[in-house]
């Protein structure tokens, strides 16, 4: 693995190897040393959370980071080409971790520079490190990635997180339930991919009646801005808010996950149940990113 751009590039073996390394880093069996290694965090689109997670991952391994956030402070604004910006930053750093609203930006970056590139999100396309930390959270809580029943709820149309996760889990013979309002359904191209891989999925519009047989319920936020009429949002949002009473008949091993930030789609009364897993999930993100950086820099 030279870069991490898209889940589409990863084989099942590579994913399992990454899960294994992540587990060993968490348990302290592998202690990667990134002393004198510098990661350039280029965030052309704001994301405090993912940026902090990478920053933490690098610093936990004694490495360091240089950070560019937005385009205001850079020469991109002065008219420099994207390729020139990347090539210059590659002279200073050992690895580039980038987020961009432009789809395919990280793929292009990997063609332009000689150092490894990690895609930390490119528009509505891919967010592979989130998918990998989600997979790690699933394998850690369920003991396997195979034959699970996974519910994806919320905004399945615009959420790149659920797209990457669906593609990644498709390698492991899962059953999906897609739960969303009709106009925020999983895009056809993802469903076509799943069909060609013979992965079963069902689509529903109501969260409450469809979670009792799940192993994992992955909730994402429905953004008010997606609705043309605010009244439609008010009418619909109740169907997609997970509350404690809804969990009375779920499987014991169910874990509720969320990429965060949460707004009101998971009621806080779920937080202190044994099903809530979104905050440990965020912590898993640091271990996963440590593993990704270590593998790409040849340290493990």
């Amino acid at each position: 693995m030279k870069n991490l751009i898209s889940m589409r590039d990863l084989s099942k073996e590579e994913i399992l190897h990454l899960m294994d390394v992540t587990g060993k880093i968490e348990e302290g069996k592998i202690v990667p040393d990134m002393q004198r290694k510098l990661a350039a965090l280029l965030f052309f689109e704001p994301s405090t959370r993912t940026m902090f997670s990478f920053d933490t991952a690098m610093k936990r391994m004694n490495g360091d980071t240089i950070i560019m956030s937005g385009t205001g402070q850079t020469s991109v604004k002065k008219g420099e080409s994207f390729a020139d910006t990347l090539q210059t930053i590659a002279q200073y750093s050992d690895i580039i971790i980038m987020r961009s609203p432009v789809e395919g930006a990280a793929r292009y970056a990997s063609e332009v520079v000689d150092i490894p590139v990690v895609n930390a999100g490119d528009g509505a396309n891919q967010h592979p490190t989130q998918a990998l930390l989600d997979l790690y959270s699933i394998v850690k809580t369920q003991g396997t990635l195979e034959n699970l029943s996974i519910g994806l709820a919320g905004d399945l149309r615009f959420g790149r997180t659920v797209h990457s996760l669906a593609q990644a889990m498709a390698l492991f013979n899962v059953k999906f339930k897609f739960i969303s309002p009709s106009f925020l359904k999983m895009p056809q191209y993802i469903k076509d991919d799943l069909k060609s891989q013979k992965i079963e999925f069902e689509e529903y519009e109501n969260i409450e009646d469809n979670i009792d047989d799940l192993d994992v319920l992955y909730v994402t936020r429905i953004q008010k801005e997606r609705f043309a009429d605010p009244e439609d949002y008010e009418k619909l949002k109740g169907s997609y808010i997970l509350e404690r009473p809804m969990l009375s008949n779920v499987k014991e091993n169910l874990k509720v996950m969320h990429p965060l930030p949460r707004v009101d789609e998971i009621h806080t009364d779920v937080d202190n149940t044994e099903f809530a897993y979104y905050f440990p999930q965020a912590k898993n993100g640091v271990f996963t990113r440590q593993a990704i950086i270590s593998i790409l820099l040849g340290e493990v």
Binding site: E103, R107, Q126
Partner: peptide
């Protein structure tokens, strides 16, 4: 399929 944005 676009090699960059991955849309089909």
């Amino acid at each position: 399929r676009c090699f960059y944005c991955e849309k089909k």
